[in-house]
């Protein structure tokens, strides 16, 4: 409600930063392409070097879009969870959604040696991996939703999410103990996270799911704001608690589940971005916060990916490591500076 002008300014700055980061992300990579050439490809010009054009259109741009979707999706799911669970430390990992995805991936990659018939079909590719981790995260989400209907306390739900995570981690370690080195390596590569392997077709599926997640969040804006007071107050304001909780949990699951399915488990974006956004936009109104975290998440993910690319060298660092290395100090800094995390 306070001066809309300041928000407009913050949003213009955020959008400008997004454009800059997008440009930076696609002009840097393992192959050095001059910035002017990158730009002329984007506006539709023809390059003399066909391979550069190919790299930009079929590798770098899908990767940049993936980074945007991954960052936005995780950041929004983090915001939703922090509000729903009234806990500043909530994030997509807490509900066990990411663990569910890991379990799905682990079962497919490492379990396939136990159920060798499955391997015969040569199912082990990126798409089957995405499907397996989606199924994993949605099964966990379904479990959480069934329990949410019985347990009224959101703190209990949070702990149940953590327990799901522990169970998953246990199963994954048992699987890795029995599996061979090659499979284990494959699983570890998946768990590094990556935004680089999506085709345009996969990208459009991810976009579709994330748009549904954003739509559910927009429909929940009023309930989310009421939840800031606590559930009893929200009910006294006429909010349908059950319906709103389902809608918000569903949105979280769609966002975090689909991202983890396609890009692997990516840490800290979901937790840190909502807090960083609150640093620059001083409001708790979700009408403002939702678009802000979407843009901020995209910016941060593009930056992390640019760093992970390790410009002009062939090596690509695991993106999960980059987000953790950048994200963990940010969370510590926020805690130290503000003494406590408020949301």
């Amino acid at each position: 409600m306070r001066s809309r002008k300041t928000y407009r300014l913050s949003f213009s700055l955020l959008l400008a930063a997004l454009v800059v980061c997008f440009g930076l992300n696609i002009s840097l990579g393992s192959v050095s392409i001059p910035f002017s050439e990158t730009f002329s490809t984007l506006v539709g010009g023809n390059l003399e070097n066909r391979s550069w054009e190919y790299i930009i259109w079929n590798y770098r741009i899908p990767k940049a879009f993936t980074a945007i979707l991954v960052g936005s999706g995780l950041a929004l799911s983090g915001l939703l969870m922090q509000t729903l669970f009234r806990n500043p430390l909530a994030g997509p990992f807490v509900l066990g959604i990411s663990s569910g995805a890991s379990l799905g991936a682990a079962l497919l990659i490492m379990g396939s040696s136990l159920f060798s018939g499955f391997m015969a079909f040569g199912l082990l590719n990126d798409i089957s991996l995405a499907i397996a981790s989606s199924i994993g995260s949605f099964l966990v989400l379904l479990g959480v939703m069934v329990i949410a209907a019985k347990v009224k306390d959101t703190m209990a739900l949070l702990i149940i999410g953590l327990m799901f995570g522990s169970i998953t981690a246990a199963i994954v370690s048992v699987l890795s103990y029995f599996t061979d080195a090659e499979k284990l390596q494959q699983f570890i590569y998946w768990s590094f996270g990556s935004v680089g392997n999506l085709s345009w077709a996969q990208l459009s599926i991810l976009l579709g799911i994330i748009l549904i997640g954003i739509l559910c969040s927009i429909l929940s804006i009023k309930a989310l704001n009421a939840f800031l007071l606590g559930e009893d107050y929200a009910r006294s304001l006429g909010v349908d608690l059950k319906r709103s909780r389902y809608l918000i949990i569903m949105a979280t699951g769609l966002l975090a589940g689909s991202v983890t399915a396609f890009a692997g488990p990516i840490a800290f974006i979901g937790l840190a971005v909502p807090h960083l956004t609150r640093q620059i936009i001083s409001t708790t109104d979700h009408k403002i916060l939702i678009p802000a975290v979407l843009v901020y998440g995209a910016i941060l993910m593009l930056l992390c990916d640019t760093v992970a690319q390790f410009p002009n060298s062939a090596s690509v660092l695991p993106i999960n490591a980059i987000t953790s290395i950048l994200g963990a100090p940010v969370v510590i800094w926020l805690l130290v500076r503000k003494r406590r995390m408020i949301f």
Partner: peptide
Amino acid sequence: PIASKNMSVLELIALGRQPYTNWLG
């Protein structure tokens, strides 16, 4: 205690109008 103490006084009081506002609040 209210869940989020990060709200401004004005934002908190404005939440009282929720039963009357549109779907976006």
